[in-house]
Design a protein around this nucleic acid. Structure first.
Lengths: 145, 145
DNA sequence: CTGCATCCCAAAGGATACTG
DNA sequence: CAGTATCCTTTGGGATGCAG
């Protein structure tokens, strides 16, 4: 724990120089607030997994969706899917038959969000191992927790 | 809307290329597991906000970072930033001076993740209002809770 | 200034039982 | 099958105090 890691200040100074010439992104306050709201919307594990599952399998029933997501309780699946329905990401179609049949599918909005996340899936595919290695390397030093 | 972040076009084009060789909807189990791990990594509100803050402002100190993120407690900021450091997303540079000076910056890996999320920011910009409207419309009907 | 430690409350989330 | 309701454990996260 007490290990203070001091990285080369040179590298940081180098970074500063690089950044200096680049007015990176205009920090638009109202846009920022909007992005923030959306972040709080989708920054949820189950939401992302449901989104991915529906993106891949199209129209699925409740139980099937739970299987696809994996490791999710009925409670959380219901909650997540309701929230997504509320936000216009999925449609929930109830067939009043016995036994009940409820099908979930992405809306256009949902599909567009899935497409937006596509870049993240690709990142995961390409850099996932780097994260794992970084984590293990750090774990042997930090020893935190 | 037209004035979107410039880097977006490049990032998206880059991703299209990388996707070209990939069979679209194949459910690869090991790839899926990897994506799942990454999701659990980044599906966190503060992580995303810190990522965005560092992406926009470059190298910042601890307190400044807290201001940029906004509404985060010192405890959670420390925790989040430590986790990101552990995962190789940020560097933490400590200057052993008085008063202490600690600077945070994205690593290459962190920047690449930020670029991957760029598509999501754009989505938020384009479809954020739709979500808000869908939510309010649903609220008047659902009346749940 | 940075951030660890502690206490403490509120929210997230799992397990189970029950209903249409 | 697709939930709702209940209980209960775990985690998230704020407030405060203190150390380097």
């Amino acid at each position: 724990m007490g290990t203070v890691l001091v990285r080369s200040a040179n590298a940081v100074a180098e970074m500063r120089k690089k950044m200096a010439g680049v007015p990176p992104k205009e920090t638009d306050p109202k846009l920022d607030a909007l992005v923030r709201e959306i972040i709080e919307l989708v920054a949820d594990k189950w939401t992302m997994l449901v989104l991915e599952a529906l993106e891949e399998h199209g129209v699925v029933r409740f139980t099937r969706l739970g299987e696809l997501v994996g490791g999710v309780s009925q409670k959380m699946l219901t909650k997540t899917v309701r929230q997504m329905e509320r936000d216009g990401l999925v449609t929930r179609t109830v067939y009043p038959v016995i036994p009940p049949r409820v099908e979930y599918a992405l809306t256009e909005l949902g599909h567009s969000l899935g497409a937006a996340f596509c870049g993240v899936w690709i990142w995961a595919e390409e850099h996932g191992d780097e994260v794992m290695r970084a984590r293990e390397a750090f774990g042997r030093v930090g020893a935190a927790k």
